[in-house]
Design a protein around this nucleic acid. Structure first.
Lengths: 217, 217
DNA sequence: GTTTTTCCTTGACGACTGTCCAAGATTTAT
DNA sequence: ATAAATCTTGGACAGTCGTCAAGGAAAAAC
């Protein structure tokens, strides 16, 4: 009996929690978009609320403070961005296919989600000053590293070789390329982006070791 | 005669200009320190003034607005940071010496000027959102790339070989290592920093091509 | 020594910030 | 339908921000 009564209350409680979480997520997504547009330094709660369908007061009903809200937004970013290349890895049957499709998706997301990515870099840098972001940032960063490593190690496997670099080295390299491409993309420097795209296959080959493979043309 | 008179006035004018510029630079340096400590998002003019020996009002006597002030501070950063490895390049006589001294200085400046470097990354990211920083950022970035390339190409030369990567690829790789090391350094993650230090020689060797050289031990 | 120019301080301004709260609107339970 | 719980609004708050101007202090010019 108490079981039945409790499970009923539990159902109610759970539904409330679900609803609460759903709205939290909704507001976190709105926050994410605002941050991506304005950057951390210029994003205010009223601006965030204006990008949602609610008023600014509601944010303190669902979030303890601004930090709580932004932290939740960062977690939303991770949900979106950390499995991007997995289908490429799964479907590729030749090293060339994997490499070329990776490069294509790499520069696709650069153009498509440029504002989201600049936000990521903004927040990662924020964590250099603000300790309270560091744990989340380091976790996301490690997930990004793992994502890159799935690509690189699979590429080496398809070429029947071993990667020439560590996961960390591979990640910082590709992330560095991405960061630079993002900067020049947003600066309208299309020819520099194109140049980076042209060099990316060679960079990848460098990371997995060049042995056995000819030119990239 | 007018020559003499003009040259006198010119001397006066020049001295005034020099004095004006000297104070501008002084205030820009104070700005640099404040930015390095607090980050772009949290740096206010009053805070900057408190890090100098003047009051906040004086900033608008020497600078048109906040942007003007910060731009000047960024230029000061460049003066400090862009020739760091040149003496290493000039003095090294063997590839091992160049590589090891480069690595040593790399992690020296990481520990010593950590706050200054996080500021650089902060401002570079700011330029992803704020167009008015982009020109300066791109210029500094290209100087950093050239600085890295002087090291890498000289290293290849000492090993009587050719670099395996482009200047852009070499830069983004080493800059990526630095960025990551900085993050973990500031997070107190000393063992990760040590690991990156241990891997850096291999990364360098990868960039110049491994041909002809044995292990790094 | 006096006048003129340059330099710097202080306080004020309007705008904007994160936070909180009282009260109304809406939904849910009974 | 009524009562209770939940959600949302919009305004008030104390504080901070960049900017500016009036006037005093210091330096320079004569």
């Amino acid at each position: 009996m108490t079981d039945v009564a409790e499970s009923k209350q539990d159902r109610i409680a759970r539904r409330q929690v679900d609803k609460f979480d759903a709205r939290r997520t909704e507001l976190a997504v709105a926050t994410l978009h605002t941050l991506a547009e304005l950057g951390y330094a210029r994003t205010s709660l009223r601006e965030i609320a204006q990008n949602s369908e609610f008023s600014h007061g509601v944010l303190h009903y669902y979030f303890a403070d601004k930090r709580d809200l932004i932290t939740e937004a960062v977690r939303q970013y991770e949900v979106v961005c950390v499995t991007r290349y997995d289908e490429v890895v799964a479907s590729a049957t030749t090293p060339e296919q994997l490499r070329d499709e990776f490069v294509a998706m790499f520069f696709d997301t650069l153009g498509q989600d440029a504002t989201l990515h600049r936000l990521w870099y903004d927040l990662r840098n924020q964590s250099l000053f603000d300790e309270s972001f560091r744990a989340d940032v380091l976790e996301i960063d490690s997930h990004r590293e793992a994502m890159v490593w799935r690509v690189i190690s699979r590429y080496a496997e398809l070429r029947a070789g071993e990667p020439a670099s560590s996961p960390a080295a591979a990640y910082v390299t590709l992330d560095g390329v991405f960061q630079r491409a993002l900067l020049h993309h947003l600066a309208g420097n299309t020819e520099t982006v194109a140049k980076l795209r042209g060099e990316l296959p060679e960079v990848i080959d460098l990371l997995v070791g060049d042995a056995g493979s000819g030119s990239t043309s």
